[in-house]
């Protein structure tokens, strides 16, 4: 037995508490990490651990796949953490493509010295989010890089889902007079992460909107079918980036009324203070919908029946292309072009 105060013991304790390079080297430590920590937390089947690949069996419909990497800093922020974000982000990509998510893979890149306790918190968060969304984690990978070569933990998730119905989400189907709906208040995620990282100390602290969107998305598709022309979660670049993408794809002008864009009082105050336009700020649980004008009310009713999109509203419409791809009506009633986000405003938000 070591005296707990001796250096030797502290090193040993360090070995037990943090990620070592050996955790990624394929030996005993790695097996223990996966079998004793990762697999139980994610309810992985022991038989699945014996193989490097998972067999999914027959899927009921056309298969959709997406992949996304998560490098958010800080790892924990009000309203979420890198784990829940890694699940929601990928599930939302599937949902926006019109698919029902079924499976996830999980790849972890860990920095030497990363606290195992923190890893547990993140794995628990991944497990909770995956359970909540009804998807199972079927395959994974763990790598460890030397101290300084990563920022604690990076996560990649690949999502697999099954397409609902025949129609695919195609923003080129957006027509003039289509109504543009946003599912809820915008700009929350980016400001939550920025405020947490910079320790601004706002009270109340802004909270991320990180949430899965597959349920309202599926419901919309089932009810509106071909009258639902496009859906897109407004992640990096915010609502402005989606509007520009849609304008580009459809050849129409996207017109929005700034007064109708939902922004919480807290977001509004913080964005004003920091000189940031919420239209350019990332969301992780808010999406835009373009819908045939005759079915706009039906779409709103459908969205309102889900708590994640209960505060949806119409913010504008598509119209024949003018000089500008995206127009916004501000304060005094003049229509002006809305700039395309050119990046780098808030680095590493997802």
């Amino acid at each position: 037995m070591h005296d707990p105060s001796t250096p030797a013991c502290r090193i040993e304790m360090g070995l037990a508490d943090t990620i070592q390079l050996a955790h990624g080297e394929g030996g005993r430590l790695m097996r223990q990490l996966i079998e004793n920590r990762i697999a139980p937390l994610l309810s992985l089947d022991r038989s699945g651990l014996q193989s490097d690949a998972a067999v999914l069996g027959q899927l009921d419909g056309e298969t959709v796949v997406t992949t996304d990497s998560f490098v958010v800093s800080p790892l924990f922020f009000p309203g979420g953490d890198i784990g829940s974000l890694a699940v929601h982000g990928t599930i939302n990509d599937l949902a926006m493509a019109g698919a029902t998510p079924t499976h996830l893979t999980l790849a972890l890149i860990l920095e030497e010295g990363f606290a195992l306790q923190t890893l547990d918190r993140i794995l628990n968060s991944i497990a909770d989010a995956a359970n909540h969304c009804g998807v199972s984690v079927v395959a994974g990978d763990t790598k460890v890089v030397p101290r300084g070569a990563a920022d604690g933990i990076f996560i990649n998730t690949t999502g697999i889902g099954v397409l609902q119905g025949d129609s695919r989400m195609r923003p080129d189907r957006i027509e003039a007079s289509d109504q543009l709906i946003v599912s809820g208040p915008i700009g929350k995620h980016g400001l939550a992460v920025l405020s947490a990282r910079e320790k601004f100390g706002f009270k109340p602290a802004p909270e991320s909107d990180s949430a899965p969107l597959h349920q309202p998305a599926q419901d919309l598709r089932n009810q509106l079918d071909l009258d639902l022309h496009a859906m897109r979660d407004a992640t990096r670049g915010g609502v402005a980036a989606v509007l520009h993408e849609w304008a580009e794809a459809s050849g129409q002008t996207m017109w929005i009324d700034a007064a109708k864009v939902p922004v919480t009082a807290n977001t509004h105050a913080i964005a004003e203070l920091l000189g940031i336009d919420p239209l350019f700020v990332a969301n992780e649980g808010t999406f835009l919908v373009a819908v045939h004008p005759d079915r706009c009310e039906a779409a709103l009713d459908c969205l309102r029946s889900h708590s994640v999109s209960a505060q949806c509203c119409v913010i504008g419409h598509a119209q024949p292309r003018d000089v500008s791809a995206v127009l916004i009506r501000r304060g005094i009633g003049v229509d002006q072009p809305l700039d395309e986000p050119s990046g780098a405003m808030l680095p590493r938000i997802c």
């Binding site: 500008s324 009506r329 229509d335």
Partner: peptide, 15 residues
């Protein structure tokens, strides 16, 4: 560069 388009006139709202 960001906000100005001199050739655009205000458009009627179609709601």
């Amino acid at each position: 560069a960001r906000f100005q388009t001199t050739s655009i006139t205000p458009l009627e709202r179609s709601e």
